[in-house]
Computed example of a mutant assay.
Amino acid sequence: MIQPLAYIHPEAKIARNVVVEPFAMIHKDVEIGEGTWVASHAVINEGARIGKNCRIYPGAVISSIPQDLKYNDEYTLTLIGDNTTIREYATVSRGTSEHWKTEIGHDCLVMAYAHIAHDCRVGNHCIIGNNVQMAGHVHVNDWAIISAMSAVHQFVKIGPHAFVSGASLVRKDVPPFTKAAREPISYAGINSVGLRRRGYSNEQITEIQNIYRYVYMKGLNNADALHLIELELPPSDERDEIVNFIRTSERGIMKSPLQVNGSAEME
């Protein structure tokens, strides 16, 4: 169902059962999968590849030119997976020659007024809260949640199943399974509520808590903490994911609350 007052470039590839409401604009070199709904006044620019059963709300702008002075009109893309929702006035920039694409996975929710900049990679089942502002090259892993009004520094990585509290300034990497809060941002425990909702057992959650005691509660530097984790704790998928994330972090991970305010109190 394509309304006559919508603008669709003749070179755009739109599946037959896509709904495009009046005053929406879809430019050339756009592909939209089956069952997707594009609301009035949404704008989908060149290079967008939108999956099946997505919902694009009024005022959203997808695949706009990057807000990067180094961008030189190179051919880049914006990829959005199936069943993802982009709410009102959210903006998603396409990639630059650094990564060539901006990616949002499947089954994500990007809330109103959020901005996802060039070359960001957002995994599957992620929630990006109202007015979250993500600079370029941010990597958000699967099942992560960034709460409203947060700002994420360029090149930051947010681990899988992590939870970032509202109005946070995220300048450092947020390791897997953790909660991030306070200013400056610091460890606030593990995301036990989210993990239980996703089927993690009590034994797995306890194991993750024990791992982060080495990282955040014993006063160790990261290298010593990782050495003891691998030496003293049994191997598991969760242990290896945490260790690999911290070991490969380029910006460094968020601090311990002991380093921030001398208190070990967890939220």
Rank of each mutant, 00 (worst) to 15 (best):
Y89N: 15
Y89S: 14
Y89T: 14
A90T: 12
V92A: 13
S93F: 13
S93V: 12
R94S: 01
T96R: 00
S97M: 14
S97V: 14
H99E: 15
H99R: 15
K101D: 11
K101H: 09
T102E: 11
E103V: 15
E103K: 14
E103Y: 05
E103T: 14
I104A: 12
I104Q: 08
G105F: 01
G105R: 01
G105P: 01
H106A: 15
D107G: 14
D107S: 15
C108W: 01
L109H: 07
M111Y: 06
M111L: 15
A112S: 14
A114M: 05
I116W: 10
I116N: 12
A117T: 05
D119F: 00
G123D: 04
G123A: 06
I127Q: 08
I128E: 07
N130H: 11
N130Q: 12
N130Y: 06
V132N: 09
V132E: 12
M134T: 06
A135G: 10
G136Y: 03
V138W: 00
H139E: 14
N141L: 05
D142S: 10
D142V: 06
W143Q: 13
W143A: 09
I145V: 13
I146Q: 04
S147P: 06
S147T: 13
S147N: 14
S147I: 08
A148F: 07
M149I: 15
S150Y: 02
S150W: 00
S150I: 09
Q154I: 04
I158G: 02
I158W: 00
G159H: 00
P160I: 05
H161W: 03
F163N: 10
F163K: 05
S165I: 06
G166T: 11
A167R: 10
S168A: 15
L169R: 14
R171N: 10
D173Q: 11
V174W: 00
P175S: 09
P175V: 06
P176V: 03
F177H: 06
F177C: 10
A181L: 12
E183T: 13
E183A: 14
Y187S: 05
A188W: 01
G189K: 10
G194W: 03
L195G: 08
L195D: 09
R197D: 11
Y200W: 11
Y200Q: 10
E203L: 10
Q204G: 11
E207Y: 12
I211K: 01
I211P: 00
